[in-house]
């Protein structure tokens, strides 16, 4: 019988510091066993449980795109016991990874449609995975227009700057990067994500919006999304909850009868509206 609690061993190949505050880093992991890498088939929006042996494990969204075959990436903010231990680890350290878990984004629903990605702050990780997946040359034709709206508090807090640079150079993505309030030297957009979304006003025609951010962003973004004409079933939200086991057994991440780890973390806005307000 397979034991879902035993992680695969991986090695940190590369650590990239993402923000000025240095509390967000991207860890690139390779599996020690190439079979395990092959078996680790994931889709955008899923997460995995990362083990730091001696500290514990915690669920982290997968930041790399399923098209990256040789390694997986996790972008981690330093907040608790495990993430702090992870931040203190060096390249070459052995980590555990089990997963992938969660439903991920329903790619089959996104295919053939315009995709609007709306992200705020640190929650951009799985959205970055999605954007890179769509932009991959093997996939780009399967999707129509791609609009990305991404905001952070200030330029230093923008993550994946290298990706943003690369995306900017392409003509098959409508990229809008914004910061909360103006700072000297920033030439891009200024304003909160909902306001920028309103200005950019992507068409809801044959489109699906994918939104991920802090709770406060949902609160102000959803009215704009509705105004733009997106019907609730065409809006996807990705949730965060305190999780432990990742497989719906430990009992803490439920919202109503749905476990965020197992039934989520991606829900449509329609599903979300029916859920109890406990998140």
């Amino acid at each position: 019988m397979t034991n879902p609690y035993i992680p695969n061993l991986t090695v940190i190949r590369k650590i990239t510091t993402e923000n000025e505050a240095k509390d967000i880093k991207t860890f690139e992991l390779t599996f020690k066993d190439s079979e395990a890498m092959k078996n680790f088939k994931y889709r955008c929006g899923q997460f995995a449980e990362i083990s730091v042996f001696g500290a514990g494990e915690c669920p982290i969204g997968i930041a790399s795109s399923p098209m990256d075959k040789d390694a997986i990436q996790f972008t981690v903010k330093r907040v608790g016991v495990v993430t702090t231990a992870l931040h203190n680890s060096e390249e070459g350290t052995v980590m555990g990874v089990r997963g992938p878990y969660g439903n991920g984004f329903p790619m089959e629903r996104l295919e053939g449609r315009n995709v609007v990605i709306v992200g705020g702050g640190f929650a951009f990780t799985t959205l970055r995975s999605l954007a890179n997946f769509i932009l991959h040359k093997a996939n780009r034709e399967k999707f129509k227009d791609l609009t990305v709206i991404y905001g952070a508090r200030n330029p230093g807090e923008l993550i994946y700057k290298y990706d943003l640079e690369a995306w900017k150079k392409r003509d098959d993505i409508n990229l809008n990067v914004t910061i909360d309030s103006a700072v000297p030297g920033w030439k891009g957009l200024v304003g909160f994500v909902p306001a920028v979304l309103k200005d950019v006003a992507p068409s809801s025609d044959n489109a699906i919006a994918v939104v991920c951010g802090p709770p406060i962003m949902y609160k102000f973004t959803m009215p704009v999304i509705s105004e733009l004409g997106f019907s609730p079933e065409n809006v996807l939200l990705s949730f965060e909850m305190r999780m432990k086991c990742g497989i719906g057994k430990c009992g803490r991440c439920n919202i109503g009868e749905k476990f965020v780890c197992k039934d989520g973390p991606v829900f449509t806005y329609k599903e979300f509206q029916r859920m109890p307000k406990e998140y």
């Binding site: 514990g56 430990c250 009992g251 803490r252």
Partner: peptide
């Protein structure tokens, strides 16, 4: 009731009742 917590302790990954 079977909710649990998972943690590391002295070379062991353990789960305890929560």
């Amino acid at each position: 009731c079977c909710c649990f917590d998972v943690l590391d302790e002295d070379g062991k990954r353990i789960r305890i009742w929560d």
